[in-house]
Design a protein around this nucleic acid. Sequence first.
DNA 1: CTACATGCAAATTGTTTGCATAGTT
DNA 2: AACTATGCAAACAATTTGCATGTAG
Lengths: 151, 151
Amino acid sequence: MTPLGGRSYDRNVPGATQETIARLEGQGHRVTGSRRAVLDAIAGTVTPFTVEDICLAAPDVGRATVFRTVKLLQDLDVVCRLPLGDGGVRYQLSQSEHHHHLICESCGAVSEFSDPELDALIRRNARREGFRLDGHSLELYGLCPACQPGG
Amino acid sequence: MTPLGGRSYDRNVPGATQETIARLEGQGHRVTGSRRAVLDAIAGTVTPFTVEDICLAAPDVGRATVFRTVKLLQDLDVVCRLPLGDGGVRYQLSQSEHHHHLICESCGAVSEFSDPELDALIRRNARREGFRLDGHSLELYGLCPACQPGG
DNA sequence: CTACATGCAAATTGTTTGCATAGTT
DNA sequence: AACTATGCAAACAATTTGCATGTAG
């Protein structure tokens, strides 16, 4: 993937779309208008996004196609599914580095952070239980600075 | 769904049902036959369970009531929802201590662990980002000992 | 007796599939 | 031209809701 050394949150990098298109071609998938539209929608979305977000951002693409495309992107490891605590299904670009989510229960904002020390500790716990770790997800729920009383 | 063998946290403790009934009464909720049946079903289930599991174990209780009861138990903090990677929804008794989940992507087994050091690190990250932390969820995905090649 | 709980079925919501057609390569 | 992808609608699956009836307190 694009070696974006970029910021942790806000918008997805524009280059990601181009690179994904290259990957589609490389794997023998066709680069269609619908797929471009979905990729653009994803690139313009604050992570993490829902299928609904994409449908709104790419209104000319049918729902079924959005679902099919998101699934395809999952298979290509371009996006990954994010199991949120509220049961809602979200996706986000699979980024090179691990990050976790801070979810504001008041305004719904999602920001990200990463902490190598935390990841190391997680790996250690998995090892202790005899698990072969493939991935993990960590979400913190609370109030963002702007939503705190007196903040 | 393959039960996870040989661990200490396989079955739910019998006392939990009685305690939950006491809590229901204490909060002004009625203790009905359906609710008892659902609680018994949960008590007899290997964690984590699905709504379907309960419907099978308590066939005389209508589906809607099972959903309503599980939601009530969530509100009472008797059970908690588990966001699994495959999108399936499971629940389990909220255990006394804070814990995290190890989810086997092969057999679906879910085991638990807790690590105060990890929790402390999580709190520190939230503080650094200015978040007022209310809760968090952490799931690790991988292969359990039994499902590892050569394991 | 009164209000809350239940069951059933209809209504929602979220996701997948069948099929004829449009679009890529 | 060959074959894949799309859109639409119907099919599904999971969960919620309206309402008349049952029942715990």
